[in-house]
Design a protein around this nucleic acid. Structure first.
Lengths: 234, 234
DNA sequence: CACCCACTTTTTGCATTCATTTATTGGGAA
DNA sequence: TTCCCAATAAATGAATGCAAAAAGTGGGTG
């Protein structure tokens, strides 16, 4: 009972799975990541049964850890667990997708709002740099690179919000609709490419002025328009 | 191979645990709910180990379903799973709490924004009714009833947003900070009671005018002020 | 007396096994 | 032939058992 080794829990321990961080974790988490990728990448059809046994031998593990992973994925909303009928890939209805996009839009708006409070001049300069790159890609009609720059900007804003819980929640939703995004018709984006560029100008402007409320409005509307372009008009 | 019983998955199945709905579910979900309540209600101290064996005999189940439930709770962010050292109650730092409050504020802002698009006159009338009740409680200094009305209004706005994913995410975060809320000093609220009432007037006003952006700003600021009152000033 | 190392005990993680429920198939009756 | 029901087969949900890792303990040494 000396006082040398009397420390509180001494956590710097990485949380497991709710997404805050991607710590090394146990073997189990490795499986979880693999399985999540496997599903997100669309190897299973919407609404399809998740073949427990097949996955077991695919990953060379027994059912126990696999079932634990499935429970987690269900909690994340990627699959649904039917009482005594196993797991199914969660199929997203158009309404579900609309709701998820709105939710992501709300989170982006929040990120912008918080970023305005905390972002440094250097970070704004970085974003301006990416913005200019993006404009170059736009002029060259390089859709792929444009898209990458676009993502990078939103990611920078998210980072500037400095809110790990927000980042984790955003990542979770991203995962849920990634399946859709792969299949989504991005060509529609092309129609409003110029419009999107103008919206991004406005984003940068509001960010420079640190006008949180404005930026929130712009970012939410930005995602709204994106969704409308992708989804008929609903 | 007749065509009589050849239907697609035929889901109306309730998802398990990611919170969208509270379907009946299996026995497992019942355990999960009990365990979640057990933790949320604060029966275990912050950072304390979650005694696997003890909970097993408390709920009269074996370790397998318990561990599955723990995995889910970890995914929800209530506990953290340490690689080979078991589960611990997730302790929230002041920064974590600040971040969660901001996140909830962002979701409330979004709820307000969406509600402005979809709310009916009848629903607004209901909220006005509750608002007046709340004002009565305010005049009578009935903190408890005031608080209930307050909650009810925010809940109505959330419902008017008609976005199940948003509702589920909000519920999840609510659970995470409920532990804190219990211990939080609500007396501080009293100091800004009048201010909060005025903010609520503004909420109602923006809602009547269906001014989404404004309402978003007001609701976010509302939660910000609430947090500041509860948390020193950070 | 303090520190370190090996040993015991406990706990975790996973595999295996068992009971129950669900899906499937084959046969019989209308 | 078509429909329905019973018997079989398969899969799920949970309990137990086992190897490995961590925590706790005691003895020896500097």
């Amino acid at each position: 009972m000396t006082d040398t080794a009397l420390e509180p829990p001494e956590d710097q321990a990485t949380s497991a799975a709710h997404g805050d961080d991607k710590g090394p974790g146990s073997l189990h988490d490795e499986l979880l990541g693999k399985l999540r990728d496997f599903i997100v990448e669309g190897n299973l059809a919407d609404g399809a049964r998740v073949p427990e046994r097949a996955l077991c031998e695919l990953f060379n593990i027994s059912r126990t850890p696999l079932r634990e992973a499935l429970k987690v994925l269900a909690a994340e909303g990627l699959i649904e667990l039917l009482p005594n009928r196993g797991a199914r890939i969660r199929a997203l209805s158009p309404d579900d997708i609309r709701d998820l996009f709105d939710l992501m839009g709300g989170l982006e708006a929040l990120a912008g709002r918080l970023a305005c409070e905390r972002i440094t001049d250097e970070e704004i300069a970085e974003i301006e740099q990416i913005h200019h790159d993006m404009y170059r890609h736009y002029l060259r009609r390089d859709m792929h690179e444009y898209f990458r720059s676009n993502q990078a900007i939103h990611q920078k804003i998210l980072a500037a919000a400095r809110n790990p819980s927000l980042t984790a929640t955003y990542a979770n939703l991203s995962g849920r609709i990634r399946r859709v995004r792969y299949t989504a018709n991005l060509a529609r984006d092309r129609d409003r490419w110029g419009e999107a560029m103008r919206e991004h100008e406005a984003v940068l402007d509001a960010l420079r002025r640190r006008s949180g409320g404005e930026l929130a409005n712009i970012l939410f509307a930005h995602l709204r328009n994106k969704r409308k372009a992708a989804q008929g008009q609903t």
